[in-house]
Design a protein around this nucleic acid. Structure first.
Lengths: 334, 334
DNA sequence: TTGAAAGCGATACCAG
DNA sequence: CTGGTATCGCTTTCAA
């Protein structure tokens, strides 16, 4: 079993001190004779010794890292969130450990707990799976923070983007431009952010009795957008609300091929304000989403939990998107 | 120190057996009396016991996970590679642990080793930092696999995309269409894949004496592409080779605004064949890159290293891109 | 200031 | 088939 690197014992032997002393030196204890300390340091250096994180964590009862679980990495929205979390965590001296849950929703629970056990905490981003299961996981995984899940009083802090508000912003914008018939190109099956948008649609229909909104199948990527283009226009809508910017870009491309003028004949909106929405033809009206802030806030919650273990915080906070007007929307033609 | 969950000892006590037996049951040993096994299982269940991965790993000498270090997650190319690695690893019963190295190149080394120590191996993707440092890291981090680093005999398997070949493909294509003056919109500072492309440029200039290729500053995202558009056309080139598809899409958008017709006045090529290259105006001629295969292969190397520890494999393999013709390139106008 | 020894939570060998 | 015990590598009282 000893094919691994040098252990604290080897260093102790070489420096002719006890393991306890080596430990003290490695952890920068001041109560060590400078001469001895130096001897230990050079022994460690010459052996190329690195303390085992595993053993250290086991003994210390903490690892200095927290796990972030994401469903899959294709969603560009995740990168901004991850970026935010990483930066904040780094500042607090914590490492992040991204674990990709993968397609298999059934295996998700095991994945979560596995990741959690190597770390001091768990941040779940866009967790899928039934409410009950999530609840159970959260119980065992504390401290945990949930990002972007419909919050129905889960036993953990829940942060999310207010997708309903975002879509409402876009709908109101189109309505104010005179549109009375819209289409919503929906997200993929099981997307956590789809239901709130559908709620925005319902709410808008209540608010504006003369408004009509058809829902058509969409998806998550540019190809889904291409495919949805024809169904969307065939509804006769003058405004198309698309699940996100990526899908919208695909849809715009197809509309272009079909010779449908945007925004002349139909207006199109996206969601997320990704870089690309500047570069589509025409540039995309969308809502900007504070993913980065969301990430930072998620870390803040985690940091708080780490600081005072035991307390069960249940902060619920949602972040509001902002309208970003570009060329893809305009008055409905008379 | 005992604020953690139940330990194997608690289960043993409740089931009135030894810890050894509990361990056997938890690991599915067949040599356990069914009755006892059942007693243990229910004890474990009632305590909600989960074996500590940390302790388990320490004892076992293996963790069942390998670390994958990436510079940052914004590069869409990484996702495909990660996807490939993940799928393959999963099949072998290994978990992946993605660690984001972050901006700070100085801290990269520490990051690598830290990640490595929590895992059985380390896969470095697009590692930056000087050759010497990388070499040193690899020494300590074995088993390790390097992806996409200029391979100059590092002490580890090195897999990479043959960027030089890819750009050569595109250059030859443009040349065969009659172009004699090209521009190369370069990648960001320090991008590992930029030097090989510059080599492709040099090589092409040798092969085609009457060819001219100007190099202009580019970058990594759509905005860099927008910014580069004017310099690129002002060279007077009839064909623009762009660092990657994302940058190319940005450049196309700006050209459109400037009223430059593509491919009428100038041809444009990308690199990577991302989904989006179907949806630009016009659709982008590019090269398809087998990122997914690369990821799978990286895992295969890692799996081999894990299987027979000690041997130092130094496989060097590079993956060739394939030309993908679309509408953004055409004969140079007479 | 230093060292001996008792954990941390599990695995695995060796008897019984 | 089961239990006692050494072990993994490190930290941390507690004495000396």
């Amino acid at each position: 079993m000893r094919k691994n690197g040098p252990t604290i014992g080897d260093v102790a032997a070489l420096a002719e001190v006890s393991r306890a002393t080596v430990s003290r030196v490695m952890n920068g204890s001041t109560t060590v004779d400078p001469g001895i300390a130096e001897r230990v340091r050079s022994a460690a250096a010459s052996l190329n010794y690195r303390p085992s994180n595993l053993a250290r964590s086991l003994s210390l009862g903490r690892t200095g890292t927290v796990a972030v679980s994401v469903p899959d990495l294709r969603n560009p929205m995740l990168h901004a969130v991850l970026q935010g979390v990483t930066e904040a965590a780094e500042r607090d001296g914590y490492h992040l450990l991204v674990s990709i849950a993968g397609e298999d929703i059934a295996a998700e629970e095991a994945h979560f707990l596995d990741a959690r056990q190597r770390c001091d905490g768990l941040i779940l981003i866009n967790p899928r799976g039934p409410q009950e299961q999530l609840r159970a996981v959260l119980q065992q995984a504390a401290p945990a923070v949930v990002v972007n899940r419909e919050t129905s009083t889960l036993p953990a802090p829940c942060l999310s983007i207010d997708h309903q508000y975002g879509l409402t912003l876009l709908i109101e914008h189109l309505v104010s431009l005179g549109h009375r018939h819209l289409a919503y190109v929906a997200g993929p099956q099981g997307a956590v952010s789809d239901p709130p948008r559908r709620r925005a649609v319902s709410a808008a229909l209540d608010t504006h009795p003369q408004l009509r909104i058809d829902i058509v199948d969409g998806g998550r990527d540019v190809f889904d957008g291409r495919r949805a283009a024809e169904s969307a226009v065939s509804t006769g809508a003058t405004g198309v609300l698309v699940f996100n910017d990526l899908v919208a870009v695909g849809l715009l491309a197809r509309l272009h091929e079909l010779g449908v003028d945007v925004p002349g004949e139909v207006s199109v909106t996206g969601f997320d304000d990704i870089d690309l929405s500047h570069c589509s033809f025409p540039a995309l009206t969308t809502v900007g989403v504070p993913h980065h802030d969301l990430g930072r806030a998620a870390w803040a919650e985690m940091a708080a939990l780490l600081r005072e273990p035991g307390v069960d915080r249940r902060t619920v906070r949602s972040f509001r998107p902002q309208l970003v007007l570009r060329e893809s929307t305009e008055q409905v033609p008379a």
